[in-house]
């Protein structure tokens, strides 16, 4: 029974990874770009929501923003930040030779942004974890002795709903079809009149939205935010994405859930210190023996870097 409870907890935790893993997989699938700002965007949303409710609007200070509105402002801020990142990683990217380190330029820029955003938040609010007490009451109900927390269940639903919406948008909207065309073959898409330059910001807006939501849901569920909160969660989302397969949205969903469950079971069976070895070991084994992941295509991410 305890084991089943841990699996349920794992799925709940996994839903946070899922949302971010989808963000990772979108940028890799369409742009062949491993965006390292995703964990910081996640953190920005969580810390932002906390700061708005506890400290008020940055620089101006007062007034404190009510808990109902703060998350929305935080998500909008995250999307804006993501667009700034787009402007300075992709907009100015010029490939002259196509050699192996040149392809890493956006990745390196995103590492730069990771440092900038995370440390700005540190300077503003310190490095200590903060309690985020948006949900005072803890609704839980149990079915046959299994405890299910309502907020967690809600965030699982929201995560899955978002993934469905994104997937549907990719398959059925004009922009979505354009994006998929770019992912398949950027040159051909260009010839067919798909304006890649106009579609790229869409990916970054989606990234901001997904990370923002994940950050808010995580902060509400686990009641704690810190400038470091993205590092651990973000790297596990990367692991989930790889296991599911780069560029595959449903792969990211499955991978994120696998990581969540694997993490909870590992903690339960071997203790918290071994989580790192299990999660990353799983990823490494996957990369060595089935680099395309569970559902991924063989071609994505093979480009030079």
């Amino acid at each position: 029974m305890l084991l089943i409870q841990q699996i349920i907890n794992g799925v709940m935790l996994g839903s946070v990874y899922v949302t971010m893993a989808v963000a990772f997989t979108l940028t890799i699938g369409v742009l062949n770009f491993l965006n390292f700002t995703i964990p910081t965007l996640f953190m920005l949303a969580g810390m932002g929501a906390w700061a708005l409710t506890a400290k008020g609007v940055p620089i101006i200070g007062a007034p404190l923003i009510p808990v109902v509105i703060a998350p929305i402002i935080a998500i909008v801020t995250t999307i804006a930040a993501s667009l700034i990142v787009e402007r300075f990683t992709f907009r100015y990217l010029k490939m002259k030779y196509g050699d192996s380190t040149e392809h890493a330029i956006p990745l390196v820029s995103s590492l730069g942004f990771l440092l900038i955003i995370e440390n700005l938040v540190r300077i503003a609010y310190g490095t200590d974890p903060q309690r985020f007490t948006a949900l005072e009451a803890d609704f839980t109900f149990d079915i046959a002795g299994l405890m299910i927390r309502v907020p967690q269940l809600a965030s699982l639903m929201i995560s899955i709903g978002i993934v469905f919406a994104v997937n549907r948008a990719l398959n059925h909207s004009r922009i979505g079809r354009g994006l998929r065309a770019v992912a398949e073959n950027p040159d051909a898409a260009n010839l067919l009149g798909v304006e890649a330059n106009k579609l790229v910001p869409v990916i970054f807006m989606l990234t901001g939205l997904l990370c923002g939501l994940a950050g808010i849901l995580f902060a509400m569920n686990y009641g704690e935010v810190s400038p470091q909160m993205g590092e651990d969660i973000g790297s596990k989302a990367i692991a989930g994405m790889v296991i599911g397969g780069l560029g595959s949205i449903w792969g990211a969903v499955i991978g994120g859930l696998i990581i969540g469950v694997a993490e909870m079971l590992t903690i339960h069976l071997f203790g918290a210190d071994t989580v790192q070895v299990v999660v990353w070991g799983l990823l490494l084994v996957m990369l060595f023996f089935r680099p395309q992941g569970l559902l991924g295509h063989n071609s994505i991410g093979k480009g030079k870097l």
Binding site: L34, A104, L246, Q276, V277, W280, G281, L287, P291, G301
Partner: peptide, 21 residues
Amino acid sequence: RTKGVYLVLATFALAEVIAGA
């Protein structure tokens, strides 16, 4: 054997495994 993004991820994962071990 891994290339591009995969190599970056694999080396990153390797460091995490070493640290965890």
